[in-house]
């Protein structure tokens, strides 16, 4: 199955990736080649086969509902691109 430039642009929007318009045709070509490869899956009938999400197939382990972590906000914000007064700064969303 081939992916056209419009589908690539729409998928890039979903993935929050800013593709340059001039790169879209080449990206579309490579993605289409990958989709052709994965569509070999269609050669086998999988009706009724239970999907396998995970190799261990265990139920999710639960832990006690207790505080286990200490406050390390300063450490975590030290590696952030932009912070002020303990807050992460981003461009204004609401005027």
């Amino acid at each position: 199955m081939s992916m056209g430039p419009e589908q690539v642009a729409a998928t890039a929007q979903l993935a929050r990736l800013a593709l340059r318009a001039e790169d879209v045709p080449a990206v579309a070509g490579k993605l289409s080649a990958i989709l052709d490869l994965v569509e070999q899956m269609n050669a086998v009938d999988t009706a009724g086969i239970v999907p396998m999400a995970h190799p261990l197939e265990l139920s999710q382990r639960l832990r006690a509902d207790a505080v286990t972590e200490s406050d390390r906000r300063a450490d975590f914000q030290a590696i952030a691109p932009q912070t002020a007064d303990g807050l992460y700064l981003v461009p204004r969303v609401l005027e």
């Binding site: 989709l35 086998v44 239970v50």
Partner: peptide
């Protein structure tokens, strides 16, 4: 970026069963 795009596409509305679910069935095989 290619792998993010392939994954985003395969998980997007209308394609999930054909790609992700199918791949998980093959994983069991």
């Amino acid at each position: 970026q290619r792998r993010i795009l392939v994954g985003t596409y395969a998980l997007s509305a209308g394609y999930y069963d054909a790609y992700y679910l199918k791949a998980q069935q093959i994983r069991r095989l």
